[in-house]
Design a protein around this nucleic acid. Structure first.
Lengths: 185, 185
DNA sequence: CTATCCGGACTGAACGTTCATTCCGCATTA
DNA sequence: TAATGCGGAATGAACGTTCAGTCCGGATAG
């Protein structure tokens, strides 16, 4: 019984559902089945808790997307593989992905969290920059390419979680293809 | 000097920047230069205030996008016109658009707000459904089409406001074209 | 083996602060 | 004078955080 894990898990779910300011520390304690004081044995304060969560899951997604990924795949194949893994992660870890997009630009994220964010963002962007040079991807600002891909993906997940969209394998493929049409030359 | 307007404007900017739970009523009062009690002369409580704001601006965007819009335009032209108006609105009313996307699925939105949401959502979707029948738009779930378009658009604005993207007229056109490529047949 | 002791993980009541909301007296207008 | 609009101090609930005390498993003493 790892209390630190229990606290992180409870906080993740509550922050994802109710937001940072909408979640009282006592509520996290209750859900994690610990005394509220215990939270302060593991985390300096509420802000450190949310940052630790953010960095942990941001890194987890990046790991899940990258691991055992053959390099020198053609870009279209790489895109397909990445898209699939992203979907798989988001569906397996709804609270985590939901938490990440909700806190993406939150003012209480500290320097370290912002740094991790930019690092990972850059790792994805580089692929589109290469594709652009190879004239596979549209000749437009790679930041816009990133916005298109992440925008489509996160909105699709939001609508799925809101119950407006059924994520069948066909729909996931259709979304991927549409996304590719948006960014390919 | 209309205090009700002052309160709505102050609340809009604060909610957009700091979120609902992150904004104290006293802060709204200070920014609007009224006593905190005055807010309760115009609004039942904080929740009614946020809902009134939401419905007001949701309706405003819809109006701005629709007004004086010729019907029987070809869908591609209609899409261009809508995209342009949407951009114009978002840039002229940063706080309002930012507020709207931040509170899109918030749990404190009441029935009336959700109803307006669905009504306007449906008005947009119908165009894509027609385009689908006319075989101009991809033969996929119209909700996915909606998610693609709103996802690209709102992510683009977020990145612009975060300072990561310069919204030049060319970039706006490029984004529109990319978005069209995603959804056209 | 049993009894006693001990460190520190843990709890939750309590603290000071901040919150949303109410209340009341003053100012303004009629 | 009476009625209304308003500001901001007052109120109590809820917040994040603290801390005195409890509990428990293992070390020590008998």
């Amino acid at each position: 019984m790892d209390k630190r894990e229990d606290i992180l898990q409870a906080a993740l779910e509550l922050f994802a559902e109710r937001g940072y300011h909408g979640t009282a520390v006592s509520l996290i304690a209750e859900k994690a089945k610990v005394g509220s004081g215990t939270i302060y044995r593991y985390f300096q304060d509420k802000e450190q808790l949310v940052n630790e969560l953010y960095r942990y899951w941001k890194t987890e997604v990046a790991k899940a997307v990258k691991e055992d990924l053959a390099d020198n795949l053609p870009l279209r194949t790489l895109f397909h593989e990445t898209w699939s893994r992203w979907v798989e992660f988001a569906m397996k870890n709804r609270a985590a992905y939901s938490f990440l997009i909700a806190h993406h630009h939150a003012p209480y994220l500290d320097q370290a969290s912002v740094a991790i964010n930019e690092k990972i963002h850059g790792e994805y962007r580089i692929f589109f920059e290469i594709g652009r040079q190879e004239q596979i991807i549209k000749d437009i600002n790679p930041e816009l390419i990133m916005a298109i891909v992440t925008g489509i993906f996160s909105e699709m997940m939001r609508e799925y979680w809101a119950g407006h969209l059924q994520l069948t394998p066909e729909l996931i493929d259709q979304a991927e293809e549409a996304c590719w049409h948006a960014i390919r030359r």
